[in-house]
Design a protein around this nucleic acid. Sequence first.
DNA 1: CTCTCGATTATCT
DNA 2: GATAATCGAGAGC
Length: 168
Amino acid sequence: MVGGAGGVIVEVEAYHHTDPAAHSYIGMTERNAVMFGPPGFAYVYRSYGIHWCLNFVCEAEGSASAVLIRAIEPVAGIAAMRRRRGKDLASPDDPALCSGPGKLCQAMGVSIKHNGLALDRPPFELRARASVPEIVVGPRIGITKAVDEPWRYGLKGSRFLSRPFPKR
DNA sequence: CTCTCGATTATCT
DNA sequence: GATAATCGAGAGC
């Protein structure tokens, strides 16, 4: 979680430098430089000029890989997140609060200030899951290249996914 | 409920 | 100047 607000990650997408849709595909730029650095850091960028997206830099043979956080299940700081979203969400656990890259970043107040920060120091707090949940895999969403690559991972049956996964 | 389309701005070519 | 790993509103079924 981030800065006292956050929740359980329920959906992610994998990217690495051989992926045409990844920012690290073309090569290192000023923006994605953190992806080429050591793992365990946050990579934050702007999408369509108005949304923030949060990634975790991962270790994958030094190949500039990262995981995009697509959705979380709100657990802490829900009131603060609702305030930041500026929406009148009917139910306290409304999936619309964090069911998407842009939404969860807005909810947790993630911005360019968090780019390149370590995930094991404030305001970040990364904790391991108590047990291994059931995971499903599916095609990725919201990109224009290599959409069919099955690199989207989600928590099976979660109501907080940005979109439901296909049956398998 | 599903699908289409416009908004908005840092970054890249 | 063109592009984008999205969101949300609004039209059409």
